[in-house]
């Protein structure tokens, strides 16, 4: 296998811009369709990326989504500049959220984001530095999950 991905995509994500949220993921969906990524993989990438994008929008000042398409996988890295996550384990619990009332009234921040990401990505790594930001790395295997289990 070559050391260059089949496609490399980058999208900026703006914090607090609730109503622009989802645009990066929607553009990504189109690009991945063009890159020939399989429908089932595409669907999982879309759900996870939307949630990761909205996490940046809801909690951070700014961030970006970087995506590499490989023959056997799609790798997504979402990095933001913001408050970071104080307790990653707690944040992974369904229903736990630090989103504002404003965000919640719009139907965001129900504490389902990270659980949704974990459910849809095959591999997930979260690095957080409080006061600096979060780096999320997600891997989606093409042609079935590597651990043999189905969704």
């Amino acid at each position: 296998m070559g050391d260059k991905p089949l496609a490399h995509l980058e999208y900026p994500v703006l914090g607090r811009a609730y109503f622009l949220g989802g645009r990066a993921s929607t553009s990504l969906r189109r690009a991945l369709l063009q890159a020939g990524v399989e429908e089932d993989v595409l669907q999982r990438v879309c759900v996870a990326c939307y949630e990761a994008e909205m996490n940046v929008v809801l909690h951070a000042r700014t961030g970006y989504m970087s995506v590499d398409v490989w023959p056997d996988r799609v790798e997504v890295c979402v990095t933001d500049h913001g408050p970071g996550i104080e307790d990653v384990e707690l944040a992974m619990q369904p229903g736990y959220s630090t989103a504002s009332e404003e965000a919640r009234s719009l139907g965001f921040g129900a504490g389902m984001g990270l659980p949704n990401i974990r459910q849809h990505a095959d591999e997930l790594a979260i690095e957080s530095k409080v006061g600096e930001g979060v780096r999320l790395v997600m891997t989606f295997w093409r042609g079935g999950r590597r651990d043999g289990s189905e969704q």
Partner: peptide, 9 residues
């Protein structure tokens, strides 16, 4: 507008 992103994705 975010409902459109969700419906699309």
């Amino acid at each position: 507008p975010n409902i459109v992103a969700v419906a699309t994705l």
